[in-house]
């Protein structure tokens, strides 16, 4: 079964030097099974400036089994007149354009998350490896064949696309808290409630929306 004591310690450990590494891990739920990791895009890459969120699911066997990680996808709800009961369309977007990350699902192709996992690794070291993967794509072992082809054949277009995706999506989450509050209030939720919920979920707009609903 899941070793809660260790996960707790990891979270504490991680928050200690969150400033230095920029890597954060926060629980999404109370049971410590679902977590959200945050990594800054590495400097000098098309991902620079982006803040990438990663959904983490801890299996029962953690840390003896690897954590499941995938880039967070964004569900956009297109509704008419901000009325959430009349949903028109649902779209799934993912924020990162990378040969080893599926542009459809956000699944990450990284050996330490599969057979090379070692119980001595932690969530933080795993996230660091993911960050390293952003700096050093491995197009020969691709998760997303389309992106990998582009990377190999038309590098410039790849860089442009990756940068565009970073600009459009990953930076969104860095928007000021006021913007988020305003957006949620516009949807028709009371401001005080919006603020407290946003704070509770660590500023995650989607999560806040889920709670508010």
């Amino acid at each position: 079964m899941l070793d809660f004591a260790r996960v707790q310690k990891e979270l504490v450990e991680c928050s200690k030097d969150a400033e230095g590494s920029g890597i954060k891990v926060s629980p999404k739920s109370d049971n410590l099974v679902l977590l959200i990791g945050t990594i800054p895009g590495p400097v000098g890459t098309p991902y620079e400036g982006g803040i990438f969120q990663i959904d983490i699911t801890l299996p029962d066997g953690y840390p003896f089994e690897p954590p499941k990680m995938q880039f967070k996808t964004k569900v956009c709800l297109f509704s008419s007149d901000h009325c959430l009961s009349e949903l028109v369309a649902v779209m799934v977007w993912i924020f990162v354009w990378h040969p080893n990350i599926s542009s459809q699902s956000g699944a990450i192709c990284l050996d330490i998350l599969k057979d090379q996992w070692s119980p001595a690794l932690t969530l933080k070291t795993a996230l660091l490896s993911v960050q390293a993967l952003l700096s050093a794509p491995q197009p020969d072992d691709p998760q997303d064949a389309v992106v990998a082809q582009q990377y190999l054949k038309d590098y410039q277009t790849f860089v442009n696309t990756a940068r565009y995706w970073t600009e459009s999506f990953a930076k969104e989450s860095t928007r000021g808290i006021e913007d988020k509050v305003q957006k949620l209030v516009e949807m028709g939720f009371p401001e005080a409630q919006v603020r407290s919920v946003l704070e509770a979920v660590g500023g995650d707009e989607n999560l806040a929306l889920e709670r508010l609903l």
């Binding site: 066997g61 003896f64 089994e65 330490i112 090379q116 070692s118 001595a120 690794l121």
Partner: peptide, 17 residues
Amino acid sequence: VKINEGQSKRIRCMAHK
């Protein structure tokens, strides 16, 4: 965990790498 994964023949040390 390793035995259940069918890895009995090659249970590696827990240290990374």
